[in-house]
Amino acid sequence: MTDAPFIEIEDLYFSRGEHEIFRGVNMTIPRGKVTAIMGPSGTGKTTLLKLIGGQLTPERGRIVIDGQDVHQLSRKALFALRKRMGMLFQSGALFSDLDVFENVAFPLRVHTDLPNAMVRDLVLLKLQAVGLRGARLLTPAELSGGMARRVALARAVALDPELILYDEPFVGQDPISMGVLVQLIKRLNQALQLTSVVVSHDIKETLSIADYLYLIADGQVVAHGTPQTLDTNQDPRVSQFIHGEPDGPVPFHYPAEAFYRDILGEPPMTKTG
């Protein structure tokens, strides 16, 4: 294994319509480590994962995964690269026409020629790890949001990828499964030497598993470092986020005109959030 970073993001610019999401983001994601990307909601964390996965194309800058520039690849090469990645979607995104077992078996069936008995064993192993071996015959519609996300995790690791992108893995989990998930992500990383990218704003859980953290706000990386260095970071934006304080330089409110004017109906009555 080399020490070269697994993902390099250089000078990334991306916007949706008029709204600029990234303005020159630079990141280095080390191989075999858990890297967390944190930031207030609406800062484009999910968008960043989609850019890494090659589903969106940046306006400027590049993303290099293991030496390959994602957005210069042909369609075929991009799909080949994606076989080496797993992505856990916020919604789970399970295939609604397949049951839990077949959802987890899907990557194995399409990318390998393994005999059925072996597919079965592998799927049951993955489902056991997320605690849902007993739910294998349920359809996605019968699962709760948290369960669907755990099945999706089993599917994301079915092919033992080199890189896993986690989009908000902890949202909607009860305390028990949350603890198990945190352990699972950590164990997967240590046992298989995976590179993991976790996008989240659950500070406690994320700090407990991350080796390295990036904090993004206003379309840029505002701070990065190990959990210890960020915990003691003096930047008010960083400490406000890490310690979850409502008052500080990062506004809680979506941009709007002054509250009293909005309520009292003084002109101009503009549409606000």
Binding site: G53, R82, G86, M87, A93, P107
Partner: peptide, 14 residues
């Protein structure tokens, strides 16, 4: 809408 197409892409299936 339920991201099934996106997740299929990320599994490496067109």
């Amino acid at each position: 809408a339920t991201e099934q197409l996106t997740s299929m892409e990320m599994i490496g299936v067109d």
